[in-house]
Every structure is written in C-alpha cells, then in structure tokens.
Design a protein around this nucleic acid. Structure first.
Length: 1125
RNA sequence: GCUGAAGUGGUGGAAUUGGUAGACACGCUGGACUUAAAAUCCAGUGGUCAGUAAUGGCCGUGCGGGUUCAAGUCCCGCCUUCAGUACCA
C-alpha cells in the first residue's frame, strides 16, 4: 500500500478516530469486570436527558473530564467502572407526544440513538454493556420495587433509622403507640394495644399510612384546570400558567409524598464526610434549613381569669448561679460526667432553679430532679418539687463516689418508669382554654417583646376565633389573598396587608392580652403557619405593627428602635423582660426555653425548612406506581409481578374530567386473583381494582441509577449483593450544580434509606463530586435600524407620517461604524439620504432606534465577519431578505456577547461539526484547554486551531518527514528532563482536576522536544501514554505504530523520576527593594555567604546601589535574592 | 436581603507553601514559502516615557488602607459582576 506513505505522514484525524472507535467497540476495551485483583474506581457522569436537539459543545465538557480521569486511573492500574445511560423519562417527549401523537417511547428511542452517535464520535471510554435507561421496564421495575420498600418502612427516631413496617405493627399490637417515637404525620392520636387490635382493617391501614415513608396526603397544589395538571411554582407567572396563560388555582389534591423530612438531620450530618464543593453543600444546608428555637403555645383568650406564672429569680441571683455551676464538688463532677452525655428527651441540666430552689440536676422533659442529700429543708423541697410535677432522687456524696454506675442505673430506671405524681391544678386551668395557637420561634429570648400574633390567612383557627364584628373584613382579606399564588405573595414583599380577627391571645409569661391578626406575610407552609410577632426584633413584624398602629415595646437595652427593628442577636442585652432582663442572647434563650418547658407551654425544638417531597405527577411519560386501590386504601403489588408496565393511551392529555393521562388507558385495572393488569371493563368484578393514575416524578429514576450500573443486567435484584459490596459508591461524580437541591438531595435520601434497610453497603453514594462549569455561547448580533416619525412633529395627517417612512427599508449597520445611539442614527440617516430612501425635507422628522438581533453564529467567521447573503437567506431571517447592509471595508462585522448556549440565541455550536473538521481529540483537548473545569467559560471556536496544531506537532515527532521513525538511541539529559517535568506536572494536574494546565504542559513538552529534534523511543513512548487520556485516538495510533498490539488504554503510566530534574544552577532574580532588576546564573551548591559575595561584587549590583550601602541582603537559596537599600 | 464564587493584557486563561506577574493559546502586526489563497514556518506583542538603536526609567493583577525585605497571593474596609435562594418567624 504505497499510498499510505503520505497519508501516514499527514495526521489524518478522520481515519484514525474512526479506526480506533471501531476497535474499542469490537474489542469491548472498556468493559469493566466485577471481579478483579486491581483496586476499584468508579467514575460517573450525571446521565443526560436525551433531548431532541442533540448535544452541543457544552454538554460533553464534564464527560471529557471524567473520561480523562477514568482513562488515567486505568493507566494507574485500577479496575475502572465508567458507565453511561439516559434519564429518559421527561416532559419534552410528552409535550411532543401531545402535539404530534407520537409515542414518547419512539421519540425517546430516536433521541437516544442521536446521543449515542454523538457520544461515540468523541471517543469516550464508556462501558456501554451497562447502559441504563430510566424509561425501560427492566429498569423501572426496580424503581417501583424501591417505592414498595419505602411504603413498607417507617422511621424510628429511637434507633434513628428506617425500619420495616412489621416492627411497628408488632409494637402497636403489644403496647399501642404511646412509646413509639417516629417521624410521622402531625395529627396522630394516641391509642393503646387494645384499641389497635380493635381497629378495623381499614383503620389500621389508615393509621399505618401516617407512619410510612411514602404516604398519601392532601397537599395544596397549583392546579391549572385548562392544562389539567399541577404546576410548579416557577411555572406560574402573574397568577396564570407560563404556558398558555391559563388561570391557576390553589387546590387540595391527594398525592403521594416522600418523608424526606425524616432524614433532614442525617442529610445535614452526611455532608461532613463527603468531598463535595462547598457552595453545593451550602445550598443543601440552606435548603434543609435547620433552625433551632422553640415551640410556644399561646392560649386564645376565652374570657376567664388570666393565668400567669410568677417569676422566681432575679438576674443577680442568676449570675451567682453561674459561679456555682462552675465550681462543682468532686461528687458533683463525678455524677455530672455521667449525666451530661444524655441527649434528647433525657437531657440533664446542672444547678438549675426550680422556684426559689437551686437543684443539682434536672431533666425537664422527664420531670426528674437529682440531688445530693443533706440540704436544708429537704422535706419542704420535696413537697414543693412534687407539687411542681417533679420526682426527686437523692444520693449521698459517698454513694456517688463509690459507685456512680449504680446511681446512674437508678436514674435511668426513674426515667423509664416514672412514678405517678400529683398533678398541679395549673395544668387543668390550661386545659380549660378552648384554643391554642402554636408558634415556632428562633428567638424565644424576645418573648416579652410580643405585642401581637399573626396567623397565615389559611390557618385553620382563623374561622374559629374571628369575632362577629371582624368577620366581614377577615373574609374579604382571605378572599383577596387566595387569588395570589404563594410565589406572588413572596415576590411582593413591600405591600403590607392584614386584618384583625378581633380575638386576643394570652401572653404565657405576662398574662397580658395581645391582638391576633392575619397577614399574608406569614406562610402557611412554614413552621406552624403562625408567628408570635416581636416588632422590635423582626423587621416584618415591625413594618406590620407600624402600618396598623400596633404598639412596639422595646425589650433591648440601650437600643433605638424608632426607625427599624433591631435584629442583631449578639452584643445586646435584653431589657423590660421580667426574669430575662439583663441577659445576653445566649443565656436568655436557654433560660426562656427552660422556663417554658418547666411551665409546660413550650419546649425547645429544631425546625427544618425541608418539606416532604410530593411524589405524584399528573403525567403520562413516567414510572407507573405499583399501586391499586381497594376500598379507597392503596395496596402494593407484590414484587414478583413487577414491572407494572406503562399502559398504552389514545391521548397523552389529561381526561376530560380532570384525571391524569393514565385515566385514558382502557387496560388499567388490577386483577388481584390473576395477578395481572386487565381491562377496565372487569372493574365490576369483586377482585379487580383500579390502578393508580399518577406517575412518578423525574427524580425517581435518577435517585438510584448509580447503583444499577454496578450490575445493570441483573433480573433478580436491583443489583447483586456482591457487586454492591465490590463497587460500593461512586469515587468521582461529575455534573452540573443545577442539581444541588434536586437530584443530589433526593439521591442521598434514597441511598440513606436503602442503607438503613441493608440493601446498599454505604449511606453516601458519591465520595467526591465536581461541578463542571457551563460553557457559554458567544452570540453574534447585527444592528437593525427601525425608523419612526417623531411625535408632535406638526404633521397633522397620520397618513403622511406613514408616507415619510414608507420607502425606508430595513437597514442593518456594521458594528464599528458607530459608538453611540446618536452616531448610529446619523449613519443610518446619511445612508438613507444618499440612497434616496428618505426625502431630505422629512429627515428631521424621522427618528432611528437601534435593535440588536441574534445572528446565527455559523454565519460568522473567526474575524467576526458575517456572511451577509447567508444571513439574508437563513430560514429564520425571512424578515430581512431585502434588508440593506451598511458595511465597513466591504465586510459586515457583528457584535459579540457571551450568553448561555441556547437554540433561541442562535449561538449553539455542534460538536459533530468540530469532530468532522478538527477531530475528536482536538475537541477534547480544546474543551479542557478553555479554562478550569468548575468555571463558566465562553466558547470561541477560533481557539481550537491552537490544540489542532499541537496535535500535528505531536504527530510529527514520530515521523522523519517521510515515514514513521523512532530511534532506540539513549535520550539526552534535556530530553529526559522535558519528559519527567511533563510526567510530574500532568500527574499532579490530573489529580487536582486541573486539566487546562496539563494541556499547556503537553504543548510545552512538544515544543521543547521539537526544538531538541527528539525522536527517541524512550521519550516518545511514555509521551504517548501521557497524552492518551486526553487525546486517546492519536495516542492509540502512535502506540500501534510503535509496535504494540494491545490498546494503549491499560499501559502503565510513566513513573516520575526526580533525579532527572536536579539542577546544578539557578537563574536567580536579583531584586532591589522587592523589584526585580536583573537575573544572575549561580550554582546551587553555593552557600548563602558565597552567593552574597558574588552578587555584591557584580557590576550591575554596584550600579543599582549607586554607592549606597545596602541595609539588608535577603538570600533565599534556590528562590530569590533581595537587596534592601 | 442572605449565602456562595469571582474580578489579572485586545481575548481564554497561567502563577504549589508570599519570592522573576502575564506561562500556554487565541487574536493582531511584520516576514518567509506561494502566481494567489489555505496550510506551514520565523519574529514581535501589558501600558507608558526617553533613545536612531542596543537599552533604560516609571506604572501596572477591581478600589482604599495595612502587614512584610518581598503581596495577584495574607489582614481590614469598600466597589462591581455572576450564581443560588428568599416574607423561613
């Protein structure tokens, strides 16, 4: 094959890349094994949604980075798992189906094929044998299975994990639900074992549903009747749907929800042990939104005498207490060491005040006081404490010191089996109050600043407590706010509105009456939907109080609140607050909570912003639920009958009576005897039941797919135990930061759940995560002139106005012909006058404005010159077919701006075209060369010529000008130095994910080796391996030419040898007062003194000194010399 | 408002623990090769001032201070941009 000679000589990316892509596919080069002696490494990209538009150059950025890392790890001797798949359920396919009637499965299939072709073109080392698609029944079988696992589980607070529902049922049978501590619905009534056993089947199921990790609940949603679907908040603009502008109403709907709130604390804690970007962790932390404070109950005034607890201690006495607390006796310390570790409800406090007494230890929630015996008036104390509702346990000093464990055991038993104690009559008074308003506050320390309360308009108490006189205005207000969506209410912060209910609440400490208002600044969905308003300490409360003339009591020492609320916590002392006066924030907070707990109207609480996640969607193209309804109660379909396959429907729209699209299916009923999906006709039969009509949300399939890759074809389990045990978790996960509070939170939630159930071996699914930055498009603009006739110009006749501009064509002006709008106007006007489009008599009447219009970037070359004819004939530019172009130097120059890459901005660059013209290796190198992986950066195709010519130079190193030729001669010192410098830098860069700098390192290496005319095998062979993760095709070809039969992909990474980099001399920068003046080549063997001597004798130094003596000479060997004058 | 990230030539971006600011590219300018273009190769390229030139001076990492022999890098105070988020009680 003689023709090859020249072809080989020329680096031909097209042939080479096709050849090796075929080789990899045929030899399954990147197929990972679940058994290997090598250490494992799992690199994963967030899988894409296969959209109809295909990939643009922004999409592969993260894939290239992960591919480089995966290939690098193979060179380093790891067994690498690097799979890819498709998140193939989604809205666009459904929208398309609605418009065209095409089955979403079909369009999805086509889009996947396009994606696959595009991905293959770029030469990724994916193991396609493990491909997953969330929309394939083999996959969603296991999504349904996980749903059932969640349904069959509850969250036990005592063990702090999810447990099988059977353990709960067992407890209910034996002892009812009094001892159960679970994350469950709020309104659960207490029942005994007898009561449970007497429940009907349905009652039991209803009760269990309140505990299950996935459950049905009535959720308030944005319902759009015209579209027949629920809309997310951001799909609503100005109260109407974003699509089609249809009205949206708030409506309660029964929906599946996921009890993610059970995992709130663990999701927070888990962030500490994973190596994820800080901003991403922060946004998850904010999203979970833990806030520590207190729940406080305010009684609604019912006309009875006020109840108030008197204050027990002054501030001075409290200060004295502090000292007591810090000076404990030996026995006291011994016992405290044991008690202080108790957490939660059994938490103990030391040296606290109960009434006028100081007790040694107290557990407020369990009402237990522990004291040392031998105090004065022991009997009086006991009686008082019992009256207050406490049990008292006493020990002598000796008892504690000799056997502290015995004492602790006694205390524990008292906690577990509390003795009955006489109730005080105070509590009965409280029970007599008809209504209570519960509020959550992070500032219980400011409770004496409460001057009113505000309820959300939707709060259930509003209708009950509103007085007759206020009824009208309250109802009018509620009506007005109901029209506005929650988002609108949130967006409009400035308007203050509200209404007085006429009712009053009793301040629990002071016993004073405070007004109860409703206001839409209080959100029903956060906390309890009610707030205790402290106008002096909260700006919203302050504004509200000012607006409605409610008093604003000041409870801060020496703080002026005449203009605004004082929201700082630290450094301010509380005043006018009874027993809290004089205390700083932290102390006041603790004491306030303590007193609330003691008096029984409040307790410390941690509140989370994180809401349970709604899991139902009124869509077609999603996972069907494995659920049917019997007697109105949901029933799971047994595992062995999964998957429940999505039924065929005629129409993908909701039904006419507002049911989800699956309501159109005719084969959608469950035959519980035959165990299969049957026609709806059979619903008359007693054993046939309706199936769930909702489908699962987009995040269902993506919340566990990373586990499926470990054993993607398993039909018996979602992955085998062995494979899960082997691969464990993702070692490196790369994807966009837009998933911070969606996918990445839900996936962590499911992983923790699966971990609790013993299904997966680790409770965090990704050790390290990197967010790749977005690649931005460089949009091109043309500047269009629009002509108007000035208003009030004196032309009385409308028609003549039109005549003036009738002949004016669309004019488009090149970018550099104007610097301002005024210049633009005069350029256009002159042009119009010169070409007789405008009558000079009317010139002054015409006004020209400038509009920038996106031009397709494919019509613009690298010098910003527009293909004018191409623009005129562009399919989307019909309006400009006859436009006049004002050129500069014969060409039209466009304006440029960096924007998000998007079809509508005509700035999308297709990777296929780049691969065709420059090659996949160039694309890969260039995407990495653009800048740091995490950073957003603009795409400019012109820059690709740099990496392209680098590849050509690399290629040339292996050729003698005519044919492939490498020499087996010994390399020179310089050649070895270049190689090892490169090995070191590239290795460091890859480990630090600094891919952009290693591309420059390659360029430097190739430039140096070209200068050295190096063609030594011992240099060029390792060089090919170094380059191979970045530019795998050319590396394979060179490797092959070097005589290797095997793929380069598992060749050992070259080993860095520091001895080649040892230098004997250094070109020192000599600076004066920190400013570098000249350099001096000096041996590194020289001592400091020798260096100083040589430098000081140098004539340039003498010139710089100008005869002055240096004040100081700083010499850092190997670094710098600085002379201070 | 809050949280986070970032501000360096005409452009993308380098600069490991404070130690020669602007690596590597793009672009631009000039040159070689060519009938010409493309491709390729060579040289120059932060600003400014002085000089025919070699060269030299000064200024330069968003702004204002500070620490240090030495600051893009550390500290204090601002400004701007981007991203996320929000009546969160």
């Amino acid at each position: 094959m003689q023709l090859l000679k020249e072809q080989i000589m020329q680096y031909n990316h097209l042939d080479i890349e096709k050849k090796w892509q075929k080789f990899w596919a045929e030899n399954q080069t990147f197929k990972a094994s679940n058994e290997s002696d090598k250490p494992k490494y799992y690199v994963l990209d967030m899988f894409p949604y296969p959209s109809g538009a295909g990939l643009h150059v922004g999409h592969p950025l993260g894939y290239i980075a992960s591919d480089i890392y995966a290939r690098y790890k193979r060179h380093k001797g790891f067994n690498v798992l690097h799979p890819q798949g498709y998140d193939s359920f989604g809205l666009p396919a459904e929208q398309y189906a609605i418009q065209t009637g095409q089955h979403p499965a079909k369009t999805t299939e086509e889009n996947v094929a396009t994606y696959r072709r595009q991905l293959d073109n770029i030469g990724f080392s994916f193991d396609w044998s493990r491909e997953v698609r969330t929309s394939s029944p083999e996959y969603y079988k296991w999504t349904q299975w996980i749903f059932i696992q969640l349904f069959d589980s509850w969250y036990n607070i005592n063990t702090d994990k999810a447990e099988d529902i059977s353990t709960l049922i067992k407890t209910f049978k034996k002892e009812g639900n009094t001892s159960v501590k679970a994350v469950a619905d709020e309104e659960i009534t207490v029942f005994s074992a007898d009561e449970w056993n007497a429940f009907s089947n349905k009652e039991q199921e209803e009760t269990l549903l309140k505990y299950r990790l996935t459950f049905l609940s009535d959720t308030e949603v944005n319902w759009c009747p015209a579209l027949g679907t629920v809309l997310a908040n951001d799909e609503i603009v100005n109260g109407v749907s974003e699509r089609g502008s249809h009205p949206v109403i708030r409506k309660k709907m029964t929906q599946w929800s996921m009890r993610i709130s059970a995992y709130a604390q663990r999701l927070l804690d888990g962030l500490e042990k994973i190596d994820w970007p800080q901003p991403l962790k922060d946004s998850q932390t904010n999203w979970i939104g833990r806030s520590q404070g207190a729940m406080v109950s305010f009684n609604v005034d019912n006309g009875s005498d006020k109840v108030s607890s008197e204050v027990k201690l002054t501030y001075k006495e409290l200060e004295a207490l502090k000292e007591v607390r810090q000076n404990l006796s030996k026995a006291e310390t011994t016992l405290w060491d044991e008690l202080k570790n108790k957490k939660g409800a059994s938490k103990f406090r030391k040296k606290y005040t109960i009434g006028t007494f100081v007790v040694d230890y107290v557990c407020v929630t369990k009402n237990i006081i522990v004291e040392f015996s031998g105090k004065e008036d022991e009997a009086v104390r006991t009686e008082f404490f019992n009256n207050e509702g406490f049990n008292v346990i006493r020990f002598t000093n000796e008892e504690v010191i000799e056997n502290v464990l015995q004492a602790v055991a006694e205390i524990n038993s008292a906690i577990q089996f509390p003795k009955a104690i006489e109730k005080t009559d105070k509590k009965e008074v409280k029970d007599a109050n008809l209504y209570k308003i519960d509020v959550f506050t992070t500032r219980p320390d400011t409770i004496f600043g409460v001057s009113f309360m505000t309820l959300a308009p939707e709060h259930e108490l509003v209708s009950k407590i509103t007085t007759k006189e206020q009824k009208k205005s309250v109802e009018a207000y509620i009506k007005a706010t109901a029209k506005r969506s929650e988002r609108d209410r949130m967006a409009d912060v400035k308007t203050i509105s509200g209404a007085f209910t006429g009712a009053y609440a009793i301040h629990p400490f002071s016993g004073e009456k405070v007004q109860i208002w409703i206001g839409d600044y209080v959100l029903a969905s956060y906390g309890t939907g009610a707030v205790m308003a402290v106008p002096c300490g909260d700006q919203r409360d302050y504004d509200f109080a000012k607006h409605f003339g409610i008093p604003i009591p000041n409870i801060f020492e020496d703080i002026d609140i005449s203009d605004a609320a004082h929201t700082d916590k630290e450094g301010t002392k509380i005043a006018n607050s009874d027993f809290l006066s004089g205390l700083k924030y932290k102390k006041a907070l603790k004491l306030a909570i303590f007193e609330m707990e003691k008096r029984g109207f409040g307790y410390g609480k941690i509140n989370y912003r994180l809401r349970d996640a709604v899991f139902s969607r009124q869509r077609y193209w999603g996972e069907p639920f494995p659920v049917y309804y019997k007697d109105g109660m949901p029933q799971m379909i047994a595992d062995e009958h999964l998957p429940i396959v999505l039924p065929e429907v005629e129409k993908y729209l909701p039904t006419e009576d507002g049911k989800p699209p699956l309501g159109n299916a005719t084969e959608w009923a469950w035959d519980s005897r035959a165990k299969k999906v049957v026609s709806n006709d059979k619903l008359k039969n007693k054993t046939v039941y309706p199936l769930e009509l909702n489908t699962m949300p987009g995040w269902a399939g993506s919340s566990w797919y990373f586990n499926r890759y470990m054993d993607a074809t398993n039909t018996n389990a979602f992955a085998s135990k062995e494979s899960l045990e082997y691969w464990k978790e993702i070692d490196l996960y790369i994807g966009g930061s837009e998933h911070a509070t969606g996918h990445l939170l839900y996936a962590r939630f499911w992983q923790k759940f699966l971990f609790d159930k013993g299904i997966v071996p680790v409770d965090e699914f990704a050790k390290k995560l990197i967010n790749q930055g977005m690649i931005l498009g460089t949009s091109a603009f043309v500047f269009k002139a629009t002509a108007f006739v000035k208003n009030g110009c004196g032309c009385s006749d409308e028609k003549s106005n039109d005549d003036v501009i009738a002949k004016i064509p669309t004019v488009i002006v090149s970018k550099n012909l104007f610097n301002s709008d005024d210049e633009f106007e005069s350029v256009v006007k002159n042009y119009l006058l010169d070409n007789k489009f405008l009558d000079p008599n009317f010139a002054d009447l015409v006004m020209i404005t400038k509009t920038a219009i996106h031009a397709d970037v494919s019509l613009v070359n690298s010098s910003d010159e527009l293909d004018v004819d191409g623009f005129k004939n562009h399919a989307l530019n019909n309006d400009y077919k006859n436009a006049e172009f004002i050129l500069e130097d014969e060409v039209y120059k466009v304006g440029r701006e960096v924007e998000k890459m998007s079809k509508s901005k005509y700035n999308v660059v297709n990777p296929d075209a780049i691969c065709e013209e420059y090659g996949a290796d160039s694309l890969r190198l260039f995407e990495m060369f653009l800048g740091p992986l995490e950073q957003a950066k603009p795409w400019k195709t012109s820059g690709i010529s740099g990496v392209s010519s680098f590849l050509k130079k690399l290629w040339k190193l292996y050729f003698n000008g005519e044919a492939f030729e490498v020499s087996d001669a010994e390399p020179t010192k310089d050649e070895l130095k270049t190689l090892h410098k490169t090995i070191k830098k590239v290795e460091e860069d890859i480990e630090n994910f600094s891919f952009n700098t290693s591309v420059s390192t390659f360029m430097i290496a190739v430039n140096e080796l070209t200068t050295l005319k190096c063609n030594k095998r011992s240099i060029l062979e390792p060089l090919a391996i170094l380059v191979s993760p970045y530019a795998p095709h050319i590396a394979e070809e060179l490797w092959n030419l070097l005589g290797h039969k095997e793929s380069i992909s598992t060749a050992d990474f070259p080993v860095f040898n520091a001895s080649y980099l040892v230098e004997s001399a250094k070109n020192y920068p000599i600076s004066f007062n920190g400013k570098m003046r000249f350099t001096l080549e000096l041996s590194l063997d020289l001592s400091k003194d020798e260096i100083e001597k040589i430098v000081m004798e140098n004539e340039k130094t003498i010139a710089q000194l100008e005869g002055k003596a240096p004040k100081k000479v700083i010499i850092v060997p190997g670094k710098i010399i600085n002379i201070v004058i």
